[in-house]
Design a protein around this nucleic acid. Structure first.
Ligand SMILES: [Zn+2]
Length: 483
DNA sequence: CGGGTTTGACCAGCGC
DNA sequence: GCGCTGGTCAAACCCG
């Protein structure tokens, strides 16, 4: 456990020297060279103010028509600073836009929450009652941990939403859902195989599950160790009808195991995110035993690194969903209720896509995207790897994410009809959960700055590049050639 | 040769 | 305690 701490510290130290180096470099230049470099440093340090200052100097120099190399450097610096300034302004503008969007969300929240409370009083009452019962237990993390929900559009006969209380106490706290990853590396790992002591990469990659095990058994662990495991335990499962061996979510995954699951002839594949060393995100891919065209992908954990635009949708959604499950406030169940309401209002008729279930060992959100009347629209053309169609981020990708019941819906949605109701319902789900709202805001920001395509470019899944790995599930399918 | 996959082994939790 | 199951590890293997 101690060496894990050391690794984290080392990682931080690795990052720090860069800035230190920069600083020292500037100092050296100051010392070595004359006032030119001093001025350069001054420019860098003071930024915009000196930018205008330089412009004045530049003008005078131009008049004198004596451009020395120093002056050219000045010009370049000026240009660079102008760009920097412009970028800064753009950044500020984008932030303001984001703030406005968030405010609009909040405004919509209030309205839609009211509507939802009026339209679905029974559901909320039930949830409130449930919440009261859980609150009575006195352990918030317990209640959070004990609840999960499944959003299932595949089984209309299933309950619209039901929340079960899971009496199993697995972890101790579920706080800090959104920042789990880094802390996860810090959290101690009590269980470690003796022969794994010297693992380097795999140590960091695989250490978190040790954490899980220890967490589950040792509930008396210190609180600061808890959040990671809790978040990691929150799972977001996506059921999508796909012939592809795996849905494309924009992340890089490495297969680290495969098991035959009980009651399912199809093996379950285990993947971990390899976009960043130590990223705690894992996913399980398994085909449905009943309908092998349905691919169930279960995500676990949050990424601790930047993601390509094509991956942010997935990451943010899973994060948001996990936050919904594990949100520190009492809004957890409210969020569940709103989620149920959300999917009950979706354009397609599946009114019972939201099922809350905690029977599973881990709180899991299952988003069932297989109930679409025309599932082919979920898939991105001939792509063998189904792009991840996720409702929460599908606003921009609506044609793919929300297959309409009729061909007209897409156009209608563009004109606000179905779309508006969908947006409202989505907003309803967002309404009561700040974490989800924050996650969505980040998603929106990422989408605004990203290519709006289904965006599987970033997917570098090599897991199925080898037929062997997918031979059991879908031998005929090759790695996706998606755009 | 580096990185990913395969696959048997290992471990922990759980039920009996 | 034993067996089952889920999850993970890591050596061996494969591939570009
Ligand atoms: Zn990651």
């Amino acid at each position: 456990m101690q060496h894990h701490h050391d690794k984290v510290v080392l990682q931080h130290l690795k990052a720090d020297p860069r800035s230190v180096r920069h600083g020292s470099k500037g100092e050296e230049e100051d010392c070595d060279d004359a006032s030119n470099n001093n001025r350069i440093d001054r420019h860098v340090n003071t930024g915009l103010y000196l930018h205008t200052f330089d412009l004045g100097i530049k003008g005078s120099i131009t008049e004198e028509k004596h451009k020395t190399s120093t002056d050219r450097q000045h010009d370049q610096l000026t240009i660079l600073k102008e760009e920097l300034h412009r970028l800064h302004i753009e950044n500020v503008k984008l932030k303001n836009k984001l703030d406005q969007i968030a405010k609009n969300y909040s405004v919509l929240k209030a309205q839609i929450v009211l509507v939802l409370q009026q339209s679905q009083p029974r559901q909320n009452n039930f949830l409130q009652i449930q919440q009261k019962d859980e609150t009575r237990n006195g352990h918030q993390y317990m209640e959070r941990q004990s609840t999960g929900f499944i959003l299932d559009i595949n089984e209309p006969s299933s309950q619209c939403s039901h929340i079960e209380t899971n009496n199993q106490l697995r972890s101790t706290s579920l706080d800090n859902c959104n920042e789990c990853s880094h802390s996860e590396q810090v959290v101690g790992r009590s269980r470690k195989r003796p022969h794994m002591e010297n693992r380097s990469e795999h140590d960091t990659l695989g250490s978190w599950e040790k954490n899980k095990c220890s967490k589950e058994t040792e509930q008396t662990k210190s609180i600061e160790q808890v959040p990671d495991a809790s978040l990691r335990k929150a799972r977001v499962s996506v059921r999508a009808r796909s012939d592809a061996p795996m849905i494309s979510d924009g992340c890089q995954w490495r297969k680290y195991g495969q098991k035959m699951a009980k009651g399912n002839p199809c093996p379950r594949a285990y993947y971990r995110c390899t976009m960043s060393m130590g990223c705690p995100v894992r996913k399980q891919v398994q085909r449905c035993a009943d309908d092998k065209t349905i691919l169930t992908t279960t995500y676990e954990g949050n990424h601790n690194h930047p993601l390509p635009p094509s991956a942010t949708a997935m990451a943010n959604t899973t994060s948001a969903a996990a936050s919904m499950l594990l949100s520190g406030s009492t809004t957890s169940n409210e969020t569940l209720a709103n989620s149920a309401a959300l999917f009950s209002h979706l354009p397609y008729s599946a009114s019972n896509i939201a099922t809350l279930s905690a029977s599973a060992p881990f709180p899991t959100i299952t988003l069932d995207l297989t109930h679409s009347p025309n599932t082919s629209q979920f898939q991105c053309g001939p792509s063998l790897s189904t792009p991840f169609p996720f409702p929460m981020h599908g606003i921009r990708m609506q044609p793919m994410c929300f297959p309409p019941q009729s061909p007209n819906i897409q156009s209608a949605a563009q004109h606000g009809g179905q779309q508006q109701s969908m947006v409202e319902t989505i907003t309803a789900a967002i309404a009561t959960d700040p974490n989800l709202a924050a996650a969505l805001a980040s998603a929106v920001s990422s989408i605004m700055g990203a290519v709006p395509t289904s965006g599987n470019n970033g997917n570098h899944d090599h897991n199925f590049s080898d037929n062997r790995s997918s031979s059991k599930t879908s031998p005929s399918e090759e790695p996706a050639l998606h755009t």
